[in-house]
Every structure is written in C-alpha cells, then in structure tokens.
Design a protein around this nucleic acid. Structure first.
Lengths: 335, 335
DNA sequence: CATTCTTGGTTAAACGTTTAACTACATTTA
DNA sequence: TAAATGTAGTTAAACGTTTAACCAAGAATG
C-alpha cells in the first residue's frame, strides 16, 4: 500500500491523450491543442487533485526554482528583515528559499554551499563569513551563481553584490554629531576583521579629519558587534577617565549596551552624553531614549539581491552588477 | 556549450564499472565491493569533483531531505529563535529548511502548503494561521506530515504538536504578581481569535479566582500582539481613570509599548506600576527597566518540532505525539 | 491539383539516480 | 562431489516530467 501520488500519466489515461499533451496544457504551451481537449484535461487534473512533482520537472529542466540564503544568524536582529525581503521577492517570482545559518563559521558556510549545490538551487544569496585570513573559501569553486549581500568580497565567482556604503554612512553620521556641536566623539567599533567595521571606522576618521578634529585613538575601542561589548566598552571609556560628549557605535546592539551602562552610572543620555548607533534594528525605536541611528535598508537588500538573482537567471545577463543602497540618518532622542 | 555536471556515469566510465557499483559505493551500501574498486571509485569521484544531484535521487527515493517551515513573520522577534532551533536540528540530521512567511494570512498559508507539496518536502512545521472562522484550511487535505508549533489546532492530519501551556504559564505569572502584593492587576491581551491569547487570558482569570480577587472586566483590554497596541491600551487604561498597580501583558511587545506610554506620562515602573510581559524576546532584557516576563522556550520549540518530524519520518512511528514544553518565569526589574 | 500550412496531436528520449533481480565464479559445507 | 553460500559485481527498470522530432489530415495557396 505504498502511497502513490497522482501523476500526469493518470490524467493522460483518464483523458485519453498522451502525457505530452497533458504536460503542454498544464504548462500553457498549448497553442495547438483544441479547446475541448484542453478543458477536459484541466477538468480531470482538478478532479483528481493533481499536484505536479517538481523533482521530476527539475531533473529535466535543471531549474529548481529554489534559492539558498546563507547568513550568519537569523536570531541576530539585523538579519530577519533581509530574509523577509528576500523571501518576498522570491515568492513573487515563484521561487522559494532555503535558509542557512553559519554563525560566521567559514567551514559551515562551505558545507552549506556544497549542500545547496547538491540540492541544485538556482542561486545563492550570501552574507559571506570569510575573515581576512580566508583559507580557500567554498565560494571560489561553486558552480552556481552567487550574489553577495551586506559584506563585500572579491571573487570572480560572484555575479553581483548588494551593499551599502558603510564608510560614507558612518561619515555622515559623525558629521551630524559634529554639526550638533559635539567635538569629543568616542567610537566603539565592531570587529576589524570585518569589512563593515573597517569601513565604518574609516568614515569616522574621515569626518573628524574634514572638520579638523584630531583623531584620538584612546577614544576608539574595538570589539564585537554585541551589546555586551558596548556595555563593557562604555565602562572602559569611563574608567579610563576619558572625557567625551558623544559615542558613535559600530551598530545598534553596541549602542544599546553602552546606553545601559551609562544609565547604570547615572549618566543621562543625551544630556550628558549623546549616543548614536548604526543599523536601525527594530529595537532602536523602543529603547529609552529612542536611539538615533543610521538606518540600513535591510529589507531592500534582501529584496534587491533576490531580484538581481532572478534577473540574471532569466537570462538578462546584465553582467557583473553592484548595487549600493542608500542609508538614512534617523534622528531620535539619544542625540 | 551547455554546462554539464559530472555525473555518476562519468565516474563509472572512468573507473570501468557500472553506475550501480558507483552508486552503491557512494552510498556506503558496498558490503560486496572489493576494496580496490572502492578506493578507485572514491578517488575518481574526488578528482573530478563529483557532486550528486539530489533531484535525481529524490525522484527515485521520494525523499527530499527538505522540510518546510511556515510561520507568520520572521521579522517578528518571536520567530527567529524558533527558526534557528529548527534549522539546527535539521542540519544535524542532514535536512534543510525552506522558510515561508504567511503574515497570518490563511490563503497565503494554503498556497505555501501547496508549493511545499510540489517541492515534495518530507514534512512541514507549521505555525497555523487559521482564525476561528476557518474556512477549509489547506492543512486538511495535505498529504505530507505536519507538525504544529506554538498554536494548537485540531485536525486528523497533524502528526504532532509542540506547544506550551499558555494558560498555566499565564496563571503562574499572575500568581507571582499577586505574591508580590499586587491586587489590582490590569491585563492587556492579544487578539482573542488566537488560541494563545484566549489561553493566557484564561490563566489570568484563574489566578485571580484562586486568590479570591474579583475579575474586573474594565481592567482588561483586548487588541493585537504589537507594541503599538500596548502603547494605546495603557493610555486608555489611564484615561479611563482605572486604578491598578500592575499590568500583565499578552506579550513582550505589548509590554514594551505600555512601558513607553507610562514613561511618557511620568509614571515610574515598577515603583508606581509594575509590568510583566510574555515571551522573553531578545529585547526584553535590554529595555529600561528590564522586563519581567515569562520565557517561552522558542529555540527548543523549533528544535523539538523538527526532531519529532525526523523521528517520525525515520519510521519510529510513535503515533500522534504532543509535546508541552515548560515556560519559565524570568524576574527582572519591571515588577 | 499539387504543394505548403495549420491544426492537433503522438512518440520516445532524456534528465541522474537507486535498487531489485540477476550472473558468474570461487569457496564452503554436508 | 553436489549443493549451498559468498563475493563482486552487472543489467535494466523505475521515478515523473519535458521537449524535440515526428505524423496525419484538412485547409489554404499558387
């Protein structure tokens, strides 16, 4: 009593036509099929509740209508919106998305690329985890098209990129702070083995340089993209007796951690010290005071990456394409 | 110049054996294959960088090693952990996960079930979106195994459930508040067409009843699971001139919204009014004051659901199985 | 009226695996 | 020594589609 699914053959038999005919009708490649036949076949298909088997189809067309989405960790509030944007565009185009969490582990990433290759996905959207010291990444010898998202990386294998200009965004943010009159601005950075952290730090330095403010490296702390780090770094800045009027943070998580510590020390934000984040994660508008930050277009990144992928799959070989999306300064209460 | 992948046939030819032999070796069903042959085949497979085509395999085995995960919205901070738990267990077992966002739209859910069926996933993990007025749900005539998560629903088609006892958890939470001496406790509920909201409200009433506190319906507001609703409901409670010492909220989002409004009105939490949430989302520990709440085991829910699914796929037909996971009262500063 | 087009299909191969059934030979066992 | 068992494979069908190539008969064209 093996559960057999109804197939195109069943329809063919019931309708008294060949499977080819059925296939053509179901795929609307039916210019030369008579109306009565078409209707009969469609009717029967509906009656027996026919569901196509896309494995079989994929085997012959070598298209799975499936995309892989590899990112560090869906639990990190930065990524769900990306995933959602990706999924939305995918659905519109009839694609589905397999999701993979790497925890920024290159080995894991490589395994996933391999797995997705076996599953014959039509493309991969990748937030690449390679650190600078990249041992040969699986990205390099993948045979399926890859679009990079959020993090830049150079490889002949990537077909496109969707990024933001972190350095510029960061510069704009610091400029805003300077414009508000703050001069001594501390910076709590993320890990410098990531390109985003390097670029953001560079933007910070550029902004200072442009306004003729000296770069004081004692005001800069390098760590991780986590609120725990912000919490620690803020303490260390205070304990070192630095004087500063504002803290620009590598991302919102850091900012929130820092704010927490300042609050514990009885320092008022923004009256005593202003705080600025980066990302505009969901939480940013809910903390007290609401966080001024630089909004990354996460949803759009996901959406556009998939869009680019689909464009390219459908043969509009636009060649290598890079998309730089705009960030937006979101002024709230913390500055 | 069509891009052809290397197949098992290429290996077979190069090794001078049949494809069956290669297949057996690659799948470790190779009891009666000689060691030299085995080594030769493996060698060649590696050399030509062979990658199996799982479409072809799936077609014959009718197993895709893929699971569908249908949930309302991955952007809602409640769900990423579930997704992560699911993905982690899936990966351990060699499965991958297709993710689907329904926005609590039953039509969308049905379309996804259909799509996943076409893709021949081995199972579906579903946070069901049906409201009470459920027009025939696609769940009912799916032919693939379904495991329900977070939201209960009765259907012969579901193979198992992973839930928490919302009513009990809620009762425990309110009991805690009562234990702390609060008597007049308001309740800001989620939408009562969801089972979770109904159960949580019931728990609230039970706790009151047990301690002989009158249920005052003017202290109860019903709305949505969003912080905006908490923000509005808090205002309405205050504006109606109700007196109360604590607010128990249907979830953390509501609680955060309510806290925001109280702050704006200059009401101190917890000194003037205590607040308690439900879920323990990531943000809960970052707001000020940190939110006392009831932790749902989201990661475990995802993990266990997939685990149950895999168990059942692998033939350990344990029959219909329901798993009720424990919640945990997390006492922080807001109460 | 012979030819070409159109209409309405059919046939059969192909996609890349897995797997049940078979073979051929060598070795054990009764 | 005949039968059974073990070893090392091979053959071929099957999974459910798609699609290029073919076909037959009537309609239109020159």
């Amino acid at each position: 009593m093996k559960k057999r699914h109804t197939t195109i053959k069943d329809i063919a038999k019931a309708a008294g036509v060949s499977t080819a005919t059925v296939s053509m009708i179901l795929n609307k490649k039916d210019k030369n099929i008579s109306q009565p036949t078409r209707e009969r076949v469609l009717r029967i298909a509906k009656d027996i509740n026919y569901i196509p088997n896309s494995m079989a189809r994929s085997l012959v067309t070598s298209q799975t209508k499936t995309l892989g989405l590899i990112l560090p960790d869906i639990v990190n509030p930065f990524f769900p919106e990306i995933a959602r944007g990706a999924e939305d565009r995918a659905r519109e185009a009839g694609y589905s998305i397999i999701i993979c969490n790497t925890d920024d582990n290159v080995d894991q990433e490589n395994k996933y690329i391999q797995m997705l290759t076996e599953k014959m996905v039509d493309g991969i959207i990748l937030t690449h985890s390679a650190n600078r010291n990249d041992e040969m990444s699986g990205l390099e010898n993948s045979r399926i098209p890859i679009i990079l998202i959020d993090r830049d990386y150079d490889s002949p294998n990537v077909l496109g990129k969707v990024l933001v200009d972190n350095s510029r965004a960061s510069r704009d943010g610091v400029n805003y702070l300077i414009g508000k009159g703050y001069r001594r601005i501390a910076y709590i950075a993320g890990p410098l083995n990531t390109g985003t952290a390097r670029d953001r730090l560079e933007g910070y330095r550029m902004a200072l340089a442009e306004k003729g403010i000296d770069y004081d490296e004692r005001l800069v702390r390098v760590g991780e993209y986590r609120s725990k780090w912000g919490y620690e770094a803020a303490a260390s800045l205070l304990d070192d007796g630095m004087d500063f009027e504002a803290i620009f943070c590598g991302n919102d998580a850091i900012a929130i951690g820092a704010m927490k510590r300042l609050r514990e020390r009885g320092i008022a934000v923004p009256d005593d010290i202003a705080i600025m984040g980066f990302d505009d994660i969901y939480i940013a508008s809910m903390v007290d005071p609401e966080l001024t930050t630089i909004k990354q277009p996460n949803y759009s990144m996901g959406y556009e990456a998939v869009n680019m992928m689909i464009d390219s799959i459908q043969g509009n070989k636009i060649g290598k394409r890079n998309l730089i999306l705009d960030t937006e300064l979101v002024v709230r209460k913390s500055s």
